[in-house]
């Protein structure tokens, strides 16, 4: 090899050869991927930990309480002095009430906001509104819960005099507000992904922006929008603090929205803040409820990923 210039020091290649830490380098190259793989394994271990914990403790629970009376029971009276009853249906009913109201509130508003942002808003408007939605998404749920209890419920009571302090309506609405940013931003992503050429094609034939949004963009982005709604529903099902603070703690198996309710999550919180002794049926019941909750959200997430996969847009 020819060196460009003559100089007193050795050539770089010679210096490199002298520095020669190849063995160490090779060892590092071998060890690092293994270490990183183990780190990546933590997330899998977490899932395994969650599933194993839930199953294990739930099985213990079913040794004390028959599984059928849990699944089909319409009475949830764990603290009863006479005969405790562990029928999950009232808690599921409570969860579904909250979720239903939340979805009814969030889907129209979230979708409208998404359409506005993706199809109508100017860049400036988008630059202001999107961060605000992000803030809305970043508000801790405990704050929303406090808001539901101290503001939304009193306001609703002036409209519906029958409304109790703890009810399904107020936390349901607030959970709805909580998931609006999720629906809005995920749906907007889906709509923004629709190629402009499709919009231009319709606009060039004289379609109005509204027609483009409803007849071109919405159908094209449907899978993304559906997935966003399903994911948001899953969030609503798992929401804890809003319902704990504003929903109350009365498990009831009915379609009453104005009285105190209890969701699965709120029950877990109720037991955790109380002093249920370790090893009692009440202690194990939170795992059985947690497991049920986990299955619900898992199903939702699975559904969302199926929707995105199945209807992946072809553009």
């Amino acid at each position: 090899m020819v060196n460009p210039t003559t100089r007193e020091r050795a050539s770089v290649q010679e210096l490199i050869a002298k520095a020669g830490n190849n063995k160490r380098k090779k060892a590092i190259e071998k060890i690092i991927p293994v270490i990183l793989f183990l780190i990546a394994g933590v997330s899998v271990l977490t899932t395994i930990g969650i599933v194993a914990t839930l199953i294990f403790e739930t099985v213990t629970f079913f040794r004390q309480v028959p599984i059928l009376s849990f699944i089909f029971g319409t009475e949830w009276l764990p603290f009863s002095n006479k005969e405790a009853k562990f029928g999950i249906l009232p808690l599921i009913a409570g969860t579904l009430k909250i979720t239903l109201i939340a979805v009814i509130v969030a889907v129209p508003i979230g979708l409208a906001a998404a359409i506005y942002l993706s199809e109508y808003a100017s860049d400036t408007a988008r630059r202001i509104i999107k961060p605000v939605l992000e803030v809305l998404a970043g508000v801790p749920t405990i704050v929303y819960g406090f808001f539901a209890l101290t503001f939304v419920t009193p306001v609703l009571q002036t409209i519906i005099p029958d409304l109790k302090i703890f009810n399904a309506l107020s936390p349901g609405i607030v959970v709805g507000f909580m998931i609006i940013p999720m629906i809005a931003s995920l749906s907007e992503d889906a709509m923004s992904a629709v190629p402009n050429a499709m919009r231009e094609g319709a606009l060039a034939m004289g379609a109005t922006k509204f027609e483009v949004a409803i007849k071109v963009v919405l159908p094209a982005a449907l899978s993304g929008i559906l997935a966003s709604v399903v994911l948001a529903t899953s969030r609503a099902i798992g929401e804890t603090m809003i319902v704990s603070l504003a929903g109350g703690s009365t498990p009831r198996f009915d379609a009453n929205f104005t009285d105190s309710v209890q969701t699965m999550t709120a029950y877990i919180v109720q037991v955790s803040t109380g002093d249920a002794g370790y090893g009692t049926p009440i202690y194990y019941s939170i795992y059985a409820v947690g497991f049920t909750l986990f299955l619900f959200t898992l199903l939702m997430n699975f559904l969302a990923s199926r929707i995105t996969k199945r209807f992946r847009e072809a553009y």
Binding site: P4, T5, R7, R9, V12, L15, I16, A19, G20, N21
Partner: peptide
């Protein structure tokens, strides 16, 4: 390049940088 191959001496690095940029 020199650094990843274990050359740390600041003076030598300065020299290499100048020479390479001239090159």
């Amino acid at each position: 390049g020199p650094r990843i191959h274990g050359i740390k001496n600041k003076k030598i690095l300065d020299e290499i940088v100048e020479q390479s940029l001239r090159g």
